[in-house]
């Protein structure tokens, strides 16, 4: 099963690639987004700054819509999730707007960037969360987080200065504010769940 990882050309994708390989899938990493037909899933990685990444994605927006229209499972990680929203306090430029709402900075009352392990608080049951319990620890590295217009997309939250969405999902569109590729056994489980969703759809 082949999974496409979009390279924005701004950061380290080694860990994500290694995590996918450990799950037995073949990651294809490239800056050129192909047509969706040959891939079981798409991952938008979590590296870089909002404005240049949003700009880059904006140019391939129509093609991305094709992936969404064909219901290919898409996982956005950290910034890769934030650009799925409409706009961000991190910088100018429009996000993809596949999720409604904006991305805001963490409050000044806490040290930013937020770097470290936090516990997830589950808000909804979902296949993506199978085998992951309330209170499970995951690893965050971020200064911003989304503020969805539609709170029903929030599957899990975490607390740092305030409560913020840690996992969001709607249809085949998924996002995590933390880094599953760096979150030990819990992260592995979440990636495995995502890939199981992709595999099932791929076979059918």
């Amino acid at each position: 099963m082949r999974v496409f990882v979009l390279d924005y050309g701004v950061g380290n994708l080694f860990s994500l690639r290694a995590a996918l390989e450990r799950e037995g899938v073949e990651p294809i990493v490239s800056a050129e987004l192909p047509l969706e037909g040959e891939f079981a899933a798409l991952i938008l990685p979590g590296v870089g700054h909002f404005t240049p990444v949003a700009e880059r994605l904006g140019r391939i927006r129509d093609r991305l819509w094709q992936w969404i229209a064909h219901e290919v499972p898409i996982l956005g990680i950290c910034l890769g999730m934030q650009v799925l929203f409409e706009e961000s306090e991190e910088g100018a430029g429009g996000g993809l707007g596949f999720f409604r709402g904006r991305v805001v900075r963490l409050p000044d009352s806490v040290k930013v960037p937020h770097i470290g392990w936090n516990a997830l608080r589950m808000r909804r049951r979902h296949r993506l969360l199978q085998g992951i319990e309330d209170g499970a620890w995951v690893y965050f590295v971020h200064s911003y987080h989304p503020h969805p217009a539609d709170p029903t997309i929030i599957l899990a939250e975490a607390d740092y200065g305030r409560t913020f969405p840690a996992i969001v999902a709607r249809g085949m569109l998924f996002g995590t504010q933390f880094h599953p590729e760096k979150s030990g056994a819990i992260g592995r489980r979440l990636l495995r769940n995502f890939l199981a969703i992709a595999r099932e759809r791929w076979k059918s």
Binding site: V110, G116, N118, Y160
Partner: peptide, 10 residues
């Protein structure tokens, strides 16, 4: 309270 949720790292 401000550190709410964040764990100390080893």
């Amino acid at each position: 309270l401000e550190a709410m949720g964040l764990t100390k790292r080893i």
